[in-house]
């Protein structure tokens, strides 16, 4: 029994930043990088299944990213996952969710997991593409924004809930193996223990190139291209000015309008 969890290293932008000279991204000095918030939940879900099976399941963390992304991979490994795979090639520098999914599909063929998890979306670009595109390449059953999962290691079906708009949830059963994208709040993600963090440094990580996976650069072309990136006109809060009495009067108006009072 094997669960594959695809994770991403996301970038958090400073409040003040400058767009790169080519106008297509932000200068790299203005980023802080970390494991995607949603991935804490998908890794936890895999760990819960492993633990419920008495440890008789392997959790493999996979990531597409350069050396920098190793930190995010190790963060996930520190929570108790068994091993990692990192794929990188300069041809992936402008990869989108579709291109990453193409790489992940090759990894699924190699690893033959019984279940694949991704985060419901990434905290930086929020495309919500990778997981379900992976299912598309594989032709696997799939469900997005999973907020509850009842799945025993190796079972042929799982029962899950999808979180819909307005807090409503749909209950559905799904055939396995499947690709599920995991929503925030599905569980309480653990924090890695100091021992786990130390051990994660020793855990095996396969570093693979596109060649290793038999993929050409043309096969990982993205489904869109960035023309330009820019700061929005209204990037900051609309300031309510005036005396405290005026500010409160305006705030009361906003509250009443938004609450339909």
């Amino acid at each position: 029994m094997k669960i594959m969890v695809a994770v991403k290293q996301v970038a958090f932008l400073d409040d003040e930043f400058e767009i790169r000279d080519d106008g297509r991204d932000v200068g790299e000095d203005f980023f802080e990088k970390d494991l995607n918030e949603f991935d804490h939940f998908s890794v936890e879900q895999a760990m819960l299944i492993k633990e419920a099976a008495g440890g008789d399941a392997e959790v493999v963390i996979v990531i597409v990213g350069d050396e920098d992304a190793d930190d995010a991979l190790r963060t996930a490994l520190a929570k108790g996952a068994d091993r990692g795979i990192r794929v990188w090639d300069d041809a992936l520098a402008e990869a989108d969710g579709i291109a990453v999914a193409k790489v992940l599909a090759k990894l699924v063929e190699r690893e033959k997991p019984d279940m694949v998890f991704t985060g419901a979306q990434s905290a930086d670009f929020g495309s919500a593409v990778t997981g379900m595109a992976l299912a598309g390449f594989l032709g696997w059953p799939h469900a997005a924004v999973v907020s509850n999962l009842d799945y025993a290691s190796g079972a042929r079906t799982a029962t899950l809930r999808r979180e819909l708009e307005g807090g409503l949830e749909e209950i559905m059963t799904i055939r396995c193996p499947a690709v599920l994208s995991i929503q925030l709040g599905i569980n309480q993600p653990r924090y890695a223990s100091l021992r786990g963090i130390k051990q994660a440094k020793q855990k095996p990580v396969d570093e693979l190139s596109l060649d290793d996976l038999g993929l050409s650069a043309a096969e990982v072309a993205p489904a869109s291209r960035v023309r330009r990136m820019y700061a929005p006109e209204r990037g900051k809060a609309e300031l309510i000015t005036g005396s405290a009495a005026e500010q409160a009067a305006r705030l009361a108006e906003i509250i009443k309008e938004l609450r339909g009072m």
């Binding site: 400073d14 409040d15 790299e28 000095d29 203005f30 980023f31």
Partner: peptide, 10 residues
């Protein structure tokens, strides 16, 4: 590094 200088400044 340039990144550290930005972090420290804020």
């Amino acid at each position: 590094s340039a990144r550290l200088r930005l972090i420290m400044a804020s």
